[in-house]
């Protein structure tokens, strides 16, 4: 009986609209070679960094994996936001441009379904590229290394993969919001570059500039870490580098006093709200977007 009921359920099963949209996004990503190119690029970077990083270490207490993680998180900060923005800036404004948005909205689907379905599809593409790209490179390192594979500090690697996906999500959500707020593809593309520059390059440079200048005395010591939270990429950096002894040592974060570090749980909350808030704003503004 239960099996029969299951079959009947399967027969009548209708995929939620959000997933239908996500599925189409993934298929399109596969067809236009986005997925394969991104995965190859990720794997390539990871491999190069891993082999360069593991060469001089020899037999120290620090595992080659930790070196790789530190290099990868520094590289990922630049690379992952860029890929995520490229994937997402076109989501809505592009559909509008092609006329498919008007068509889609004539179907029994809500605007939030469209926005979140696109986001989910892109998230899958990005996560696949990160997991397969980083994973294959790391497996290569592990099998060439002297340390037994089981003894490697896999937890820091998993943390890197997890937080990289989180970082990607943030910029996918920001890109989606940008795509909803703009009327022209060109504006959206320019906005994507702008977001990337501000959060990945300029914010850090400005903060560094202020801290190394005389103005630094105006900022209380313990406020710095909170100011850094205003940029998702800095929260990502802190999460990967400062919340683990081995990576902290390698990246020069070990000199921090306990009160200069934000605990991992709070960092995660920050990162997650960087995803949730833009997504929520996307749904709200999409509702208001005129066609």
């Amino acid at each position: 009986m239960p099996i029969q009921r299951l079959i009947i359920l399967r027969g009548n099963y209708q995929m939620p609209n959000m997933l239908i949209l996500a599925q189409k996004e993934i298929r399109d990503g596969y067809r236009n070679k986005w997925i394969s190119v991104m995965t190859l690029v990720m794997a390539g970077f990871a491999l190069v960094l891993a082999f360069l990083g593991s060469a001089p270490v020899g037999t120290t207490v620090i595992s080659p994996l930790a070196v790789t993680v530190v290099s990868l998180s520094s590289l990922g900060i630049f690379f992952i936001p860029l890929i995520a923005l490229l994937l997402s800036y076109d989501s809505i404004v592009g559909e509008d441009d092609r006329g498919t948005l008007t068509l889609l909205l004539a179907y029994p689907i809500t605007r939030s379904d469209i926005a979140l379905g696109k986001f989910l599809g892109q998230l899958f593409i990005l996560a696949f590229a990160i997991i397969v790209g980083y994973g294959s490179a790391t497996l290569a390192i592990a099998s060439f290394g002297e340390m037994p594979v089981a003894d490697l500090p896999w937890s820091i690697f998993l943390k890197l993969v997890f937080s990289s996906i989180l970082l990607g999500c943030i910029f996918l959500a920001l890109g989606l919001l940008l795509s909803i707020l703009t009327r022209e593809r060109g504006t959206a593309a320019a906005g994507a570059i702008g977001i990337w520059l501000v959060f990945v390059v300029l914010f850090d440079m400005a903060l560094l500039g202020i801290l190394s200048s005389g103005a630094s005395s105006l900022i209380p010591d313990d406020a710095v870490k909170w100011i850094m939270m205003a940029s998702p990429s800095d929260a990502f950096r802190m999460y990967n580098l400062a919340t683990n002894n081995e990576t902290a040592l390698l990246s020069g974060m070990s000199g921090l006093r306990a009160d200069q570090v934000v605990p991992a749980s709070i960092l995660l909350v920050f990162l997650c709200s960087w995803i949730v808030i833009p997504l929520f704003a996307s749904c709200v503004f999409f509702q208001r977007r005129a066609l």
Binding site: I20, R27, N32, A106, P108, I109
Partner: peptide
């Protein structure tokens, strides 16, 4: 059933995949 004035379907998908996508949305 609606046909917009100008619509450019995703070039990378086949005609059947495109139609299947819209059919699924209508259940």
């Amino acid at each position: 059933g609606f046909l917009p004035e100008q619509v450019l379907f995703q070039k990378t998908l086949t005609g059947r995949e495109t139609l299947a996508f819209y059919a699924r949305l209508k259940g």
